Amino acid sequence: MRPWLIITICITLFSPFISQAEPYPEQRSNRQLAVTVCNDYRENNRLPCFVSRNDCPRGFEVIERFTDSSGPTFSACRDKRHERPRLSMPPGGRFAGKNPQLLKQFDRLVSAIEKGQVGRSMHLPKASREQLGHFFSAIDLTRIKLVYSKALANGCFTDCRQIFCASGDQVNAWTDPQAPVLSIRLLHQLAHVERCEIQGGRERFVRTWLKHLPDEVFNALDRGEAIDTEMIHFAMYMESHANNRAESICRRLSCERE
């Protein structure tokens, strides 16, 4: 059999498989990255998520948009309706017995922490905002204040757009314009800021998620002592949600783990 005839037969046999192959396999990478984000979000938060070509449709929010790889842009989208509390609760519902003084107590706590502020309020540098903007599209990162307060004995405490920390070095590391540090602790606090925005503001956030402020917190204030942030009890779901968000983002940014 002539060689050219053998070549013709081979091309004829394999051409259907060649035509079905992905001509530009690299174009799938953006979609695959978005699918990975959605899988993580569904697994960690038990809430719906789907992948959309280009932007998310109206009523949905971008968790992360992928444009870096060649090929079409894909976004991981979540339904914002699942993130919002119900506007009304039936009698005897989950929050019907909420202490009406809780918001006033929270205001007193924040006021004491603000009085303990050392130095001026800082902001996230541009480099950090650019890295985090894909993940926290629901919040304006330029409006977030990071504050060192000697009124805190440990850790950090978030009051919607204000993040107070017991360590001045921690705040300086996060806000260093030359070499800002992205840590999992910062991502955790930003997840609380995001939750406050989604919730519809500070008052609804506090009434929905703050569970208890023990007397010892205010006794410490009266004695002029620093506050143990571990005594400020928010709902476990909110804390686990912030942990999951921080962990998911940290894996993709290779952030520092403290």
Rank of each mutant, 00 (worst) to 15 (best):
R58H: 04
L152K: 02
K104F: 01
S121L: 06
A112Y: 00
P100E: 13
L102D: 01
R86L: 05
P72L: 04
F50L: 12
P125V: 06
R161W: 04
A127V: 13
A76W: 09
H82A: 09
V110I: 09
V110W: 00
V118S: 14
D55T: 13
H82V: 07
D159L: 03
E114K: 14
L109I: 03
N99L: 00
L132H: 08
E130L: 14
L146H: 04
V147I: 09
T73D: 12
D55I: 10
D55P: 05
H123P: 06
R129K: 10
E114L: 10
M122R: 12
D140I: 11
R108A: 15
G155R: 15
V118L: 14
R86Q: 05
P90G: 12
C160A: 09
Q162S: 13
T158V: 04
G92E: 02
F95P: 00
R81V: 03
P48C: 05
L103M: 05
F157N: 04
G97N: 10
R81H: 04
A138S: 14
L141K: 11
T73K: 11
R108W: 01
R58E: 05
F106W: 06
P57V: 11
R78L: 08
L109K: 01
V62E: 15
L47M: 15
A96Y: 01
Q162P: 04
P85Y: 08
I144Q: 08
R94I: 00
S88M: 13
G92K: 03
I63K: 13
K115D: 01
C49K: 09
M89L: 11
A127E: 15
A76Q: 12
R161S: 08
Y148V: 07
G59A: 06
Q117L: 05
L132V: 09
M89Q: 10
G97R: 07
S128P: 12
R94E: 00
H134R: 11
K126L: 08
R108S: 15
Q101W: 08
S75D: 11
D140W: 07
R46T: 07
I139N: 12
S111Q: 02
S52G: 13
M122F: 05
G93S: 07
F106R: 02
L152A: 02
V62S: 15
C56M: 09
Q162C: 04
S111P: 02
I113P: 00
K115Y: 04
G71Q: 04
D159Y: 10
T73S: 13
F60D: 06
A112E: 00
G71Y: 03
L109G: 07
C49Q: 07
A127R: 14
G116V: 00
A96N: 03
Q105V: 01
G92V: 02
S128L: 15
K98Q: 09
K80S: 14
C156I: 06
L102K: 01
E64D: 09
K145E: 12
K80A: 14
G133C: 09
R58G: 04
K80W: 10
G59F: 05
I144K: 06
E130I: 13
Q131D: 12
L87S: 09
G119S: 13
V147H: 02
R58I: 02
